[in-house]
Design a protein around this nucleic acid. Structure first.
Lengths: 197, 197
DNA sequence: TCGGTTTTTGACTGATCGGTCCACAACTAA
DNA sequence: TTAGTTGTGGACCGATCAGTCAAAAACCGA
């Protein structure tokens, strides 16, 4: 950590790089199936360094999950905000569920594996989905102002519907549905849920 | 096993009951997080009996997964066939995704945890979803004949869309979305995807 | 009752688990 | 150079892992 005086030996590794490698390992095979030997292997760090820098396995995992959620939400926010018409952003949000394929969504995978037994993971998932619903609902309201969605729509409820459909796409990709079929489903869902009627 | 002669000691346990208890344990915490001690505890059987009757941990797991898939598919088929109008069966199928709540779907949970590394699980998931798509597509075709869905619809493509939405509901339930909100989303999705237009 | 067969039980094994610890390396300030 | 501090690597720990095995128990046909 940053020291105030008598600097001592500096770290040899790149923290962000290690977190990315560790996250990818958890992502690929899950939390329980990842051993500390796996983590030292993919990171190139010894156990002492890993523990000194990030704490135990669970703390390290939560760190990667938090970073992922933060980055993902920021990306979504930006993508939704940047689209000239909100309806295009919403379509992009929905279709993004078809993009991750076999890898799935790190948060979704972790939630499925752990949320029932790990309250910290459950709480992160709850916060993340609440945040996403809020962002999507904002975009829905903008689309309403822009005349692309009916005024009568309950923005928050509709945001949850879109989020559910998006997660369905993520799951079908994870489960092995071929990319072209997944893309077709995404297109179909977008047309049915987001077509200006 | 069934013996031909000199019958010997009969089994003390109920195979179906053991399989149910074991499945519930895997279902609750996942495959990797379940130890053999957990399995002996919930089943009441010793390790030898468990191995003698079902083989190792993975074989036992696959057995519970196969049974679950068989039962689930049979239930779906029956539910779809029994509905007087196919559109009602389809609605029931979609809404069933909101029924399992925190427990989720055993196959979906297992697929998320293992499909990326376990080809047997991946193959079971593929077969199951192909079968379900076929059943749902049959119901879609019936609904078309009954005038509740437009004739121009690609039944198989639309079946995949419904399945994706249903899995989205399952996931949102697993991730902790409160029951009443989940029910609302299910209702909304059903109205949007299955309303006779 | 008894021989033959299968089931049951739990002690046991080697491997691996997550986590700790410490000798040593690498650096800064003086 | 030296004292002080922190990072590194890997040996090591007790616990737990999945899986094996043999002795005892429980049943059958005869």
């Amino acid at each position: 950590m940053g020291t105030v005086e008598g600097m001592a030996r500096p770290r040899k590794f790149d923290e962000q790089g290690v977190l990315r490698d560790v996250r990818d390992q958890f992502w690929a095979v899950g939390y329980e199936a990842t051993s500390l030997d796996d983590l030292t292997r993919v990171s190139g760090l010894g156990r002492g360094s890993l523990y000194g820098a990030f704490g135990d396995k669970h703390k390290l995992f939560m760190r990667t999950l938090d970073d992922y959620v933060t980055d993902s939400c920021a990306g979504m926010r930006q993508s939704l905000d940047e689209s000239e018409r909100a309806i295009d952003g919403l379509r992009g949000f929905l279709m993004s569920g078809a993009g991750s394929l076999r890898q799935g969504c790190y948060l979704a995978n972790s939630t499925t594996e752990l949320a029932a037994t790990d309250v910290e993971v459950a709480e992160r998932a709850r916060q993340a989905y609440e945040g996403i619903v809020g962002m999507v609902a904002d975009a829905v309201k903008r689309a309403q102002r822009e005349g692309d969605l009916p005024d009568g729509l309950d923005a928050v409820a509709f945001a949850r519907t879109l989020q559910t459909a998006q997660q369905g796409l993520v799951y079908m990709g994870r489960s092995g549905l071929p990319a072209e079929r997944l893309a077709g489903v995404a297109q179909d869902l977008a047309d049915r849920l987001l077509s200006a009627r």
